[in-house]
Amino acid sequence: MAVASSDTAIRSSNVTRTFIYLFLLLFALFYLMPLGIMLVNSLKPLSEITSGGMIAMPNEWTIEPWLSAWSTAQIGVEPTGLRPYFINSIAMAVPAVAISTVAGALNGYVLTKWHFQGATWIFGLLLFSCFIPFQIVLIPMARILGLLEIAGTTYGLILVHVVYGIGFSTLYFRNYYAAFPTELVRAAQIDGAGFFQIFWRIMLPSSGPIIAVCCIWQFTNIWNDFLFGASFASGDAAPMTVALNNLVNSSTGERPYNVHFAGAIMAAGPTLLVYIVAGRYFVRGLMAGSVKG
């Protein structure tokens, strides 16, 4: 009896399983289709696209559009390709992510492990900054960047993104550290570790998942930002997103769609890569604070 019933259970679960996987596969294909079409079209000559073969595989494979998008395409007035702007974006996103993450970690550490008067208020205000729409701060921000004499530069963008990022990174780290055992901090205090020693030696090494979450979130937001980039750093200091827009808008005559597709994939590439590399920590880290409570 027992054997027979467990047999049926396995068989029915196999059927269900196959169905589930087919279903998931269908959806995966559906969501991947735009990327597939972009990829396919970036690898064929322009003539094949203009002759109406958008969906078809290339007859003639070429990486010419990629090379053009990277180094020779017309961006605004200069035929520089996207390369300098890609470098701009890296030079903006990496420090901005690093600074806002470390600052968020420090804030979270102080807010949870070193209680002081008004801590809840300060956290509330930081949290509030998460909900301020970008558009509202454009003019005051421009004024401040002007006063600091870093308007129109990558440094200015780093500052803007750090300021905007601290609210979120503080929220992440505060919640993560709230579940972090306070006894560890007390043990380290008795062992003679100071404020920063406890932070570097005890807290940060145990924060892997939440650092991954914070970095993914910040990197995605900062890399994909268009508004701040367009407002505060046009010209040579423009980030990738602004350059992509310029690439698409500044071509004259026949539009080189294959080059545009290649450029768009380049602009999306780093965020995709970050998700692939650190994605498995993302769910784990998001869950960590909530489940342990």
């Binding site: 055992p181 006894e183 007390r186 043990a187 380290a188 205090q189 008795i190 062992d191």
Partner: peptide, 20 residues
């Protein structure tokens, strides 16, 4: 006087071993 300068040692209920 701060905890580390009191020349005391403490064993905690949760042991509080540094996990890393």
């Amino acid at each position: 006087i701060t905890p580390s300068k009191r020349n005391i040692a403490m064993v905690f209920q949760s042991y509080a071993l540094y996990p890393n």
